[in-house]
Amino acid sequence: MPTNLTLLDRLRIEGRVWSLDQQLYDLPRKQRIATRREVRSNVVSAAESVGARQALSNLGTTRQLAEEYLQAQFGPAPRASWWSASIFLLTAVLVLTSIFSETAQGFSNGILAASPHATGHFSWHGISYLQTGIDYTVRDGRVDSVGGALTPLSYLLLALGAVGVGRLWRAIPGWRRSRT
């Protein structure tokens, strides 16, 4: 007998669909959206038939379901994770920027601590190998700075880190297959 779904039922279904969706970021975007819609449609149909609790129970865990969908798309072999690589890059750039900013600020604070009304040009070589040098121009206690960018080595390390975290070399066989 068809069951009318309550607001709570619909929220629980949406929660499960959202949780699944969060684990499907390695699928192509259009396919991820289509998968999300299809699962939602099927779970709503199931919930109308057997109740939301039973329908969600029959669906299994979202982790297992996501794994099945990813295997359906990419096969059972170990996969590259573009999502993990992106998260690593974003986090590493944020952390590096934060560290560079704090150390640069520390140097300028040191200048002002030594002489609160200092005037002149100062240089700091930055964090060795990872950062370009920083030039400070101080006029009566006001500090302006130029420099402190990432070095080519930093970019290389970020790229290597992204490849390692995302196991991106695993994407090469699929990329070769798609070209032939």
């Binding site: 299809e38 099927n42 669906l59 299994g60 379901l65 359906a72």
Partner: peptide, 15 residues
């Protein structure tokens, strides 16, 4: 069979 087994199997067949 669990629904979570059938839906991905359909996706695989379609792919």
């Amino acid at each position: 069979v669990l629904e979570g087994t059938v839906y991905p199997a359909l996706a695989r067949l379609e792919r």
